[in-house]
Design a protein around this nucleic acid. Structure first.
Lengths: 337, 337
DNA sequence: TTGAAAGCGCTAACAT
DNA sequence: ATGTTAGCGCTTTCAA
């Protein structure tokens, strides 16, 4: 219920009601250890009675901390926002931050004007930032890491990046698992629809595919690249099929492209998994009801987002944190292999 | 480049350098009309030279405006975050707000503790809020509209809601169009997989389907309800098929459920559109590469989000704005009909 | 352990 | 058109 006196109740009002000074109320609010239990109780009663909520601006102005964490999504990634992977990362971040005192500032960074974002981040508007998916070109952000606490989602690309803090999924291992699944099924002509090679995920999944084929002594030249969308997946599959080389297995760098590949395979009069066994990556909602249900690699993007947030918060509190965190993946076996 | 003097440059430093008072600098920064052109120029030079960025907290504390807009996503909706529709709305909001001076505060509202969100919103932390998808139970938010400028995405449910400002898509018209498409194709036993009836979109799409069938003089009892996920769509379709009633047309309340229905239809040994013609809703990425490509209703969720943001900004500026905005839909004809 | 007092950087009357 | 003067609500030395 809103207080009768117009405007929100202030710390001063709480102090008056509890019969203590403003400084003491501030201490209680901020969980200072050196306050008597009785005083704490009295202040908390007053806070509850008045329905007091600290004013963020005032607190921030005085403490020189904002309690705001920016989640930066480069614009080109945002187009891919309909990619459940990114949406889930955002969700994970939001859920985790909701448990803390930090506020989430979602920022779509214009790539035509990176300077604007840079200034904003450095302008004292946020205490730290979370950056998801950045191409190799995004040096502006990787560099920013020296001046502002940043946690990246996915391994930052670029040789100059040394001390970045990031959380990544084990894309190489995931891709190897996916490919091994195909090899174990007896497939010998295994193609891949790789993701964009300017993204770490795109690169690593291709590396994993190659590594596993090498281990199995199979050819690794059946590669086409797509932009992670179903449409591009279909295109890539058509090109693969058009090569005239026999193909009996396919690893798609994400489920959306696998869905596109399904179409192209079927259009070519081939069956799944009869003629071509398929493994995707991401375990999005559609794979389960695809025909046939898609075998895929699951990683938990929600957890990834949450972990990024946790690490940044820890870092901002000067608690120990890991510079590099690798999240595991697991194979979800369905019937496309 | 960061200034040499530690900490960010302040308005006072700008004032000193430009040889004017702080008030004047403030006026220039805020675009007040009553400042001489020369003074404006001098101040802007100083600002540029110092690379000055106003301190948000100080500004907010003094002006009693936060320049923050909250985007509230109820938690149950967030689970559905992988639904491209919501993700796109968020994207639209973020993109639009990036063009303004407002900052986006993404809030996942815990439904087990709505009071927390309520307090936050009313605690003077934001200037206004955007609320997407709220069930009929979310009275906490619809009520909030009296105390804080709010723009809803989707029509708020509940009879007590009178003066809410909202942006909605014309779900009824969209559903009628979808259904008419089936009728025009000569289908006479048209079923629907409706969405959850505690969401406006779920209700309205069912209403549109009914209306169009009534207009065509066809039966309207072939209804099953799903939760908008592919899995539930498949379940619902199975139940429909199990009724033993002939069905030759299907309108699914979203593409995800249509995808599920595809599976169930195929599993039953039936063909699309031969035996059953299907129309979905949302035009998400998957429909295009489905087999057969899905005929669906497109609305632009990105535009919806952008429009919500625009309206709220206008309202916060005391510019005229529409309480009710209905976004159009359009039929995307592919080959599932 | 608690209180007093001095700002944090900015805006907004009010004066001039 | 510009300057002066108070704060906005909180944190944080410094004393007590």
């Amino acid at each position: 219920m809103m207080q009768s006196g117009q405007g929100a109740p202030t710390l001063e009002m709480v102090a008056a009601r509890a019969g203590v000074s403003r400084a003491t109320v501030s201490r209680v609010v901020n969980g200072s250890p050196k306050v008597t239990a009785e005083v704490v109780a009295a202040v908390q009663d007053a806070i509850a009675a008045l329905d007091y909520v600290p004013n963020r601006a005032a607190r921030s102005l005085a403490s020189r901390r904002t309690q705001v964490i920016a989640l930066v999504v480069p614009e080109s990634t945002a187009r891919v926002f309909s990619d459940p992977f990114f949406a889930s990362v955002v969700q994970g971040v939001a859920l985790e931050l909701a448990q803390t005192d930090y506020t989430l500032n979602l920022l779509i960074a214009s790539e035509t004007n990176p300077e604007k974002t840079r200034r904003y981040l450095l302008g004292g508007n946020v205490d730290g930032a979370l950056v998801v998916s950045h191409h190799s070109g995004d040096h502006s952000y990787t560099q920013l890491g020296q001046e502002l606490p940043i946690v990246f989602g996915g391994r930052p690309m670029g040789a100059d990046v040394v001390d970045s803090t990031y959380v990544d999924v084990d894309n190489v291992a995931g891709a190897r698992t996916a490919t091994r699944c195909l090899v174990d099924a007896g497939r010998t002509h295994i193609a891949t629809i790789a993701g964009r090679q300017d993204m770490p995920g795109g690169v690593d999944r291709l590396v994993g595919w190659r590594a596993e084929l090498a281990a199995a002594g199979l050819r690794d030249d059946l590669v086409e690249v797509g932009d992670f969308s179903p449409g591009d997946g279909a295109e890539a599959m058509r090109r693969l099929l058009a090569r005239g080389v026999p193909i009996d297995g396919l690893f798609a760098a994400n489920d959306q492209m696998a869905a596109g590949a399904y179409t192209a395979i079927r259009d070519a009069g081939l069956t799944i998994p009869g003629d071509i066994a398929v493994v995707g990556y991401d375990d999005d909602l559609y794979g389960e009801t695809a025909a046939p249900p898609l075998t895929t690699i699951a990683q938990s993007p929600v957890e990834l987002g949450a972990e990024m947030a946790r690490i940044l918060v820890r870092r901002l509190s000067d608690d120990p944190f890991d510079r590099v965190t690798i999240m595991p993946t697991r194979l979800v076996s369905r019937s496309s292999v």
